[in-house]
Design a protein around this nucleic acid. Structure first.
Length: 769
DNA sequence: CGCGAGCTCTTTTTT
DNA sequence: AGAGCTCGCG
């Protein structure tokens, strides 16, 4: 019998009244509006603990859906502390996607999936659609794979199937493609991300399907976090999941709804009471996380939003440090400032894991990264190019996936000529045509390669040899541990040998990445073994598909760089929010932004600000080089919204002249402007700052560099090697640098006695004698 | 059939 | 600025 050790705490002042109300709720629907930093996670864990300990609900009958796997893991850890790890382990906790993947492994048969189905990512999807377009002679001017996929994705997010998706003649072509794409996925025993939800929902909503009832009976209590970011299928799935008992708790904040572009519908949370009229509603409005200045700033930024659920965030915390708004000339200077601030924070005793740098788009990270690296400041970048998206890693995974699931054509085609084994495009074309005509998978077609029409004996032999390789490897897969299989694959396929033979710095780097993949597979095996289970290939591949970068984030003493989207749900002592300029944040895409999108940008800014506990720094520049051109920049309207008394302005130069074309702006961006957001000018000028930084004579150039470190801005010569430097390399020993080629991964040319001149990646070098 | 060079094209946010 | 693509050559 579980003993609930935290019982004493439950009634203690640990929880405020609304928190207690939510935590003690048991039966029926519950809607929790959880303001930023209002102790939401704690309420959720206490509530689950209460269900288990007081109500006697078995942990395995509780499903908790979180936004990231990281959040699920953290929740489990907290519950472990309250109830013990063995109980916490039995709770179902994960994202919608990982939960559905788990369910489909077991209950996927009725929707055409076997236990070894694979999950296709964006790249896989694209290559599949491209192939369909080619094979069916679609006009690739009218049908771009990306557009086709985004249209299909939208249908799936709205729970629409190929036959129910549209009767609009204009969209007929898309609907046909959806049908073809769907058919291919089924033939491949594969799903895409949206399918994970859609197919699970289909299992649940088919009244004749006994699996639906099995799943329903399994979960007596369902909790969904970040509910404002659920889409229509997820909502539908949720409804059929709880239709019997209605023991549903949803938690969210409409002010933090930032994923509408992914199909998320904020009406799910705003209209919740309509679908569940007897729902109990609790509002958590006290912020415990941030200083009063930061809470005030967040409120000021979100206030102009026209559509908000009524609620009032407040805090009893102290005012704290003012928010710093810093104007700089270029993005390089901005990066230098970030380095300088991080350094000062570290010297002041702040742990670097408590320092974060946010930006609106990933493209902004490069310059920041270069500056941090040059300054030897430890950092990690979340997002951007993922480890598992690298070509060599994807190749290796494709081998594993097609071994696990022979029907996966996309994976087979990816590796059929990687490394090059003389199977060219025309041979592959004939093979795929042959397979399509007979309704075979490519693996099957390979098994009888000599029957392929129009193929001479050379290519046939090569196909047969590759087919044989796969058969042999598949046999080995039966007895080998997944990590051993990977090793075998890399050897037998010639992949490793080909890279070794290349003997270039890039190839070395790829080999290293493959080694890292091997390492992560080993880690997975150890972890699974610790839980008393056996590591399966499918299990590993699924994890790889569904982890995101925030899940992967290391808990190390480093500055963290990420997009604002990735930052949702996290918190840091010091947050530096970069690129606070019109067109950057709010971001302006190709076709501008409509009102709804601008509101979402505003909510995004709200999310960014509320991540900070003690200190918030916002930077903006006068000109920024991005996408190959230089743009002139104006401070973001969100800066204009900040309360004057909470802000200190600084800059390294006089702001650009402001062309005031709207008399209203004398109040420095106050929300007195009642026009709709989109009617206000885009590059609207700021009024003069109310609270000027140190006084400056008009026209005089004011440069305030006292808040810079000496030397922080000249990171150009930052790389610690230059021509003439002595370096050390694992294999080549000591040498002397002759040249350095920059870029994200700098390549150093150096002379090594006994080896001659070699080009190596800088990361493989250390300082020599 | 495979590789390289030039070309174009795209550029938000991600499970 | 960078990646991905097509085309042409060996």
């Amino acid at each position: 019998m579980p003993v609930y050790k935290g019982e004493a705490r439950m009634s203690s002042p640990d929880l405020n009244p609304p928190q207690t109300e939510a935590a003690l709720h048991t039966q029926g629907p519950l809607l929790v509006f959880a303001g930023a930093g209002s102790g939401k996670t704690r309420v959720i864990t206490y509530r689950i603990a209460n269900l288990i300990a007081k109500e006697g609900v078995p942990p395995y009958r509780i499903l908790a859906v979180t936004f990231t796997n990281r959040a699920a893991k953290e929740m489990r850890e907290r519950l472990g502390k309250l109830l013990g790890d063995s109980i916490a382990r039995d709770i179902w906790a994960g994202t919608f996607h990982s939960t559905c993947a788990k369910l489909l492994r077991q209950y996927g048969a009725s929707v055409g999936l076997t236990r070894t189905f694979v999950i296709y990512d964006a790249q896989d999807q694209k290559s599949l659609v491209a192939r369909i377009l080619r094979e069916h002679n679609y006009d690739d001017k009218r049908f771009a794979p990306k557009q086709v996929l985004s249209w299909i994705g939208k249908q799936k997010q709205e729970a629409k199937t190929p036959d129910t998706c549209t009767d609009n003649a204009f969209e007929r072509g898309y609907a046909e493609l959806y049908a073809l794409y769907d058919k291919q996925l089924r033939a491949c025993n594969a799903v895409d991300f949206d399918d994970l939800i859609l197919r699970t929902s289909q299992v649940l909503s088919d009244p004749k399907n006994p699996d639906g009832d099995r799943i329903r009976n399994r979960f007596e209590y369902v909790l969904i976090d970040e509910f404002q970011d659920t889409n229509a299928v997820q909502y539908k799935l949720m409804r059929s999941l709880v239709s019997a008992h209605k023991n549903l708790c949803v938690v969210g904040d409409d002010d933090q709804s930032i994923y509408s572009w992914r199909g998320a519908d904020v009406r799910n949370i705003r209209g919740f009471e309509h679908d569940f009229p007897d729902a109990k509603v609790v509002k958590l409005e006290q912020n415990y996380r941030s200083s009063a200045h930061i809470v005030g700033a967040a409120l000021a930024v979100i206030a102009p939003s026209r559509t908000r659920e009524p609620k009032e965030l407040w805090t009893a915390n102290e005012a704290g440090e003012p928010i710093e708004v810093i104007g700089l000339e270029t993005e390089r200077e901005e990066a230098a400032l970030i380095v300088s601030y991080a350094r000062q924070a570290r010297e002041a005793g702040l742990d670097l894991r408590d320092v974060a740098v946010f930006y609106r788009i990933n493209a902004q990270s490069r310059v920041l990264e270069e500056a941090l690296r040059a300054a030897n400041m430890p950092y990690q970048i979340v997002g951007g190019m993922k480890f598992f998206d690298r070509a060599e890693v994807k190749d290796a995974l494709s081998y594993l996936r097609v071994l696990d699931n022979p029907k996966s054509d996309v994976d087979l085609l990816r590796v059929i000529n990687t490394p090059a084994r003389g199977i060219g495009d025309s041979t592959v074309d004939k093979l795929t045509t042959h397979a399509a005509l007979r309704g075979l998978s490519i693996t099957d077609a390979l098994a009888c390669a000599d029957e392929v029409a129009d193929l001479s004996s050379g290519p046939k032999k090569k196909l047969a040899a590759f087919g044989k390789l796969l058969v042999q490897l598949r046999e080995r897969a039966l007895t080998l541990a997944p990590s051993e299989l990977l090793s075998e694959v890399l050897d037998e396929s010639g992949y490793r040998a080909t890279l070794r033979a290349e003997n270039s710095p890039e190839a070395d780097s790829r080999l290293e990445n493959l080694q890292e993949l091997y390492g992560s597979l080993r880690d997975f095996e150890v972890e699974v073994a610790a839980a008393g289970e056996v590591a399966t290939l499918s299990g590993f591949l699924e994890r790889v598909s569904l982890v995101n970068d925030v899940d992967q984030m290391e808990d190390a003493a480093r500055v963290t760089l990420m997009t604002v989207h990735s930052a949702k749900g996290l918190e840091f002592n010091l947050v530096m929010l970069t690129g606070m300029e019109e067109e950057m944040f709010p971001y302006r895409g190709f076709d501008g932004r409509d009102d709804d999108q601008l509101e979402e940008e505003r909510r995004l800014a709200y999310v960014a600000i509320t991540r900070a506990r003690q200190r918030l720094v916002m930077t903006h520049v006068q000109r920024r080089q991005i996408f190959g051109t230089t743009r002139a920049c104006v401070p973001s309207r969100f800066i204009g919204n900040l309360p004057h008394d909470a802000v200190v302005h600084r800059s390294t130069s006089l702001p650009r002249p402001r062309y005031v074309d709207q008399p209203n702006y004398a109040t420095y961006g106050s929300s007195r402007d009642t026009r709709r957001e989109s009617e206000r000018p885009w590059s609207h000028p700021q009024g003069p700052p109310r609270q000027a930084p140190p006084p400056v004579a008009p026209g005089e150039r004011f440069v305030d560099r006292e808040f810079f470190d000496e030397g922080a801005s000249d990171f150009d010569d930052g790389p610690h090697f230059r021509p003439g430097s002595s370096v050390f390399h694992e294999r080549f020993g000591h040498g002397k640098v002759s040249a350095i080629a920059g870029g994200a991964e700098p390549i150093v040319t150096a002379f090594f006695p006994g080896w001659g001149e070699k080009k190596v990646l800088m990361k493989f070098l250390s300082a020599g004698r």
